[in-house]
Amino acid sequence: MCGRYSFVASKEKIQQQLGPEMETGANLRINFNVAPTQHSYVITDEKPNALQYITWGLIPYWSRDSKIAGKLINARSEGIESKPSFRVPIRKKRCLILADSFYEWKKIGTKKQPYRIMLKNGDLLLMAGIWDVWYDDQYAVKSFSIITTAPNKDVDSVHDRMPVILHKREDQEKWLQEQPLEDVISMLKTPEDGILEMYRVSDKVNSVKNNSPDLHQRIPESPTLF
């Protein structure tokens, strides 16, 4: 799964990567430790030239309340087209989630050590996602879920799942376009090997209360006996 990530980017970097027409707003909200139920930036098929700041944790349009939000932070690619919470969004409400990196935890003995994972070329990560709108008595709440798949060789030593990363511009554009369901599903594949790098970071990232640049600092690997 993908349970925590980081969004650290400038307006200039976003427009350099995604095009000068991309609307970012006046002040980007930097977050070194994006956690479920928090707001973060996505690009939706509804507004493909603008960042939207919405809730992480999908609330299906048919939900009775918003309590489900923290449970649907990820959507498994396998069978996504038939799951009650995902079958409409995968067809009609797709999005790209912006991040500079995501965190994953590797189990070593009885402990779990966090790692920061990012593209080797320094580009922002654009993760495939779905979104929806849920209405209560007063507000329309937009929310999203990150689609996950089997890991590539860059990640499988740490975890058995990873986000679907669309790192090619043509794939990013295609994801937001109307297309047959079979073509959408064909895009939900494990990223090729060799595009990512990772390093160990501080255990501070474990707590959502911590949100500062030192969460990106590289921590030396612990020595092993063998």
Results as ranks from 00 to 15, higher is better:
M1K: 06
S6K: 08
T24E: 00
T24L: 00
G25Y: 08
A26S: 15
N27K: 14
V34L: 10
V34H: 09
P36M: 13
P36I: 14
Q38R: 02
V42L: 10
D45N: 15
K47L: 07
P48Q: 08
A50V: 05
G57A: 12
P60I: 10
S63E: 11
R64E: 12
K67N: 12
I68K: 02
G70V: 09
I73N: 03
N74H: 06
R76Y: 05
S77T: 08
S77K: 09
E81I: 10
S85T: 10
P89G: 03
I97P: 01
F102L: 08
Y103M: 03
K106W: 07
G109E: 04
T110W: 05
K112Q: 14
Y115F: 15
R116N: 05
I117N: 03
M118L: 13
L119V: 09
G122W: 07
D123M: 12
L125S: 04
L125A: 04
L125F: 05
M127Y: 07
V133C: 13
V133P: 04
W134E: 11
Y135V: 12
Y135M: 13
D137L: 11
Q138T: 14
A140T: 09
S143Y: 06
I147H: 01
T148I: 03
T148L: 01
A150Y: 07
P151Q: 02
N152Y: 10
K153W: 00
D156I: 08
D156W: 06
M162W: 00
V164C: 00
H167K: 03
R169G: 05
R169L: 14
E173R: 13
S186N: 07
M187D: 01
M187T: 07
D193P: 09
I195L: 07
R200F: 09
S207A: 15
S207M: 15
P213S: 11
H216G: 07
S222D: 14
P223M: 07
T224Y: 00
T224Q: 09
